[in-house]
Amino acid sequence: MIRIGAFLVGLFFSGWLIVSFGVGAAAYISEPPQETAEHAFHLHPKKLSLSSDGPMGKFDRQQLQRGFQVYKEVCAACHSMRLVAFRNLGELGYTEDEVKAIAANWPIQTPSIDPATGEATTRASLPADMLPAPHANETAARAANNNALPPDLSLITKARHGGAAYIYSLLTGYQEPPAELAQRFPDSMPGPGLNYNPYFANLNIAMANPLGGDGIVTYSDGTEATRDQMAKDVSAFLVWTAEPTLEKRHQTGWAVLIFLIIATGLGYMAYRNVWAGVKH
């Protein structure tokens, strides 16, 4: 009984799947799916090599400080960084006094409550504060950005396929839409307020080119602030904001692995020793 029932169930599912396959394949051949603009023009991220890559990776603190400067002077005008506190900046190599100064001079103040009246107000930031957002809420952010919402950047390198390489490619990928796009996919041409960028999923991104030219920041360590350099530095910085424990993770990993390899080697010898003389 079980086998007859199983046979019928199997025949039904497999049979219907093969029928579905036949119908689908016939449709696929008679009407091949049309190519989309995304499929034709979307590009995979460019290669980006950072010192934090790989199992031995460590942060380049000079680069993180430069990236932080780019974030502060360019990105922070629109993008929040709500999971990072000023005190965390100490991990980039800033001294306690420098962190205090960065917090106090941050262009956006921290929301607060006036102790005398209970009214909403703002105050200068302290190292314990999280980086204040440029807009009070989503509505304000959309109103200021042509109804597009600039995403929070704290986790952005972990929240996008391709990670830091994707951010770097996006920042350096702004270009004029190719003539072929206008010919073949006129609907995919950037509309008003949109910009062509082949690294963005649907090719048209609301963010205007943020690193429009070389030298829009002046690095204090003398590095030349080319567009490419700024994009690399801020991508490196965003790897740190997304994964501030990366270095500790790598170091711990090596200690754990070395221990485990020795222990497993001993375990193997113990196993061979116990089984010596027993054929198996």
């Binding site: 497999s14 799947l17 689908g24």
Partner: peptide
């Protein structure tokens, strides 16, 4: 969920059921 992956999963699923039940 687009072609040709759907067609391939139809064949692969058909084999899965056929294997155990037939």
């Amino acid at each position: 969920a687009e072609e040709p992956f759907v067609m391939m999963s139809q064949l692969a699923s058909a084999y899965y059921f056929a294997h155990f039940l037939i």
